[in-house]
Structure formats: C-alpha cells, structure tokens
Design a protein around this nucleic acid. Structure first.
Lengths: 141, 141
DNA sequence: ACAATCTTGACTAAATTAGTCAAGTATACA
DNA sequence: TGTATACTTGACTAATTTAGTCAAGATTGT
C-alpha cells in the first residue's frame, strides 16, 4: 500500500463524485474545480479507476463519470489499490526472493512490515466512501 | 510518521544492538557488516538516535553504542520519530494553516488521514525492541 | 603515537512524484 | 452535419525526496 497524493486525490475525487452523484454524471472538470486538482492528473487517475471498475464513464456533451456501486459498497482499500499500482509499506518486499539487503535470509524486521501492512489495510478495508461523506457533513465542511 | 529505509534501518540496527548488547558497546562497523547497511548511512542515523537519547556512545578504540534503556522500554514509535524528522502520512498536513490544496477549508479527506496517522502510531506504540528480537529468534532467523 | 571509533556537515546520483502535453475518439445537441 | 464537450491514452518532464557518499575532524584506549 503506497500512500501518495495520487491516492489522496482519488479518494477526494470519488468522495466528490459520491456527493454529487444523484443521477447525472459528473465531469472531471467539475471535480477539478471543486477539489482543486489538476484536470490532467484527474484524467490519469480516472483512467485507472475505470479499468478497476470503480467508476464508469459516459461520453459526450453532458457526460462524465458515475460510481459503479453505492458509496457504501466502495471500500477505500479498493480505491487505493486501483490507483497505486504497487503495494508496499517500505522497501524490503520486492527483493523478497533473495532476502532483504542482499542477504540470503529475511531481515530482522521483515515480519514487522508484513504486520504493518495488514494493519494499514484493515484500516482502509473498514472505511467506505459513505463513511467519508457523512463525516464531512457532520463536521460541517 | 514517514516510513522510509532510514526508519527501517534504524529499527534493524537497534534490534541488532539489542541482541548483542550484553555489556560491551557495539560498533557501527559491526552492525554495518551484520545487517548490510552502509556505515556512512548508519552514522547519520545514530547521530539522530543519540540526540533523541535512544542510544549513548562510547568513544575510543573499543567504543561503540549501547541502548540507554532496556529493549522492552524502547518503543518503535520512539525510534521512528527520532530518525524521520517530519511526521506525515500523506501531504495535506503541512499546508494546514491555509487548508488543503490551497483551498480555504479542509479537504473532504482531511480527517481520514488524521485517523490513519493515529492508527499507524498505535501500531508502533505497542511494539518495542524486545518484541522484535524475541520474534526473530522464535522464527529461527 | 596511533588506530579505532564516534561526530558532523556538505554534497549528490538515482528514483519517485506530481504533474503537463498532446493527439486523439466518442457523443449530445443545435 | 458540425461543433463543443468530455472521455482516452501515451509520452514526457520538472521538482522533490531518498538513500546514500565524501570528507574532515574530535576522542579515547592501548
């Protein structure tokens, strides 16, 4: 699980989408304006979200994107996995065939990062888009 | 909380230190060889660990470093905070005076990252150096 | 004296991030 | 049918961050 602006933007954009979803598709341009995210960057992000079947697109003049499911069915873990291709907490996983740091065995802390990754994933597994938008209303944002 | 190799190396090095601590100071050179971490990089890391009172140093020919406390009294959170100066999960905190993304209010996901940071911190608050080394013996490493 | 070790700052190559740019394709609507 | 709007997709790039290296010294044990 990689946590970058790309992931944050994806969550923000989808929260925006969930909020204004009602029935009409929402254009990236609108999201870009409301959330202050570069349109070009959003395009990249939504390309991935679409490939991962989290949104679907409607082309043409009044087109835009809509969620494929209800907000409460979309877990944040799904979103982050969709945009942040590689899953990692901290190095030391990708060289796992040969051990860590070029050694032949796993490093002392190897299990630790495994556990951490699970811990973080749990967090995102337990949150869905609806949680986010109800929270933001609650806190008067 | 930033998670990089620097933090991982710090934890590895201190776990090594805890293991061989017995009574004699352990030199960075030894740690470097055992853990496969660059000596120069270790020096940087231990500089910070010392400033944060996690280790103390003994100079001279048979010098090296020793832990200032028992391994079970050193929480991983302490270590990571010591070496990873800046605390952050994902952008959107440092501009917190002016809101996120240059907007005047907090972004929809702001609270989310706060929660996540707490979640991760809890993880590291609950683990100490002793946990690490007993685990690694247990799993025959 | 001298070798081992810690101390500290400055510098840098490589990787990653956070985008931009560009050239399209599809659709709605006038 | 033309045109504006919006999605589609790949390629490229500036800025930042990471993960170190390099260097010059200060201390101490023997």
């Amino acid at each position: 699980m990689k946590l970058t602006s790309k992931g944050r933007y994806a969550v923000m954009a989808l929260a925006d989408l969930a909020k204004f979803n009602s029935m009409n598709p929402v254009s990236l341009r609108d999201i870009s304006l409301r959330q202050g995210i570069s349109l070009d960057f959003l395009e990249q992000i939504f390309y991935k979200l679409k490939k991962n079947n989290i949104v679907k697109s409607i082309r043409g003049t009044r087109g835009g994107y809509i969620l494929t499911k209800n907000p409460e069915q979309i877990k944040l873990a799904n979103i982050l996995n969709a945009v942040d291709e590689e899953v990692k907490t901290v190095q030391c996983k990708k060289e796992s065939k040969k051990g860590c740091n070029g050694k032949t065995s796993k490093c002392i802390t190897h299990n630790l990062w495994d556990e951490l990754e699970i811990h973080i994933n749990n967090f995102f597994e337990q949150k869905n888009l609806k949680d986010l938008i109800s929270n933001s209303i609650e806190s008067r944002n």
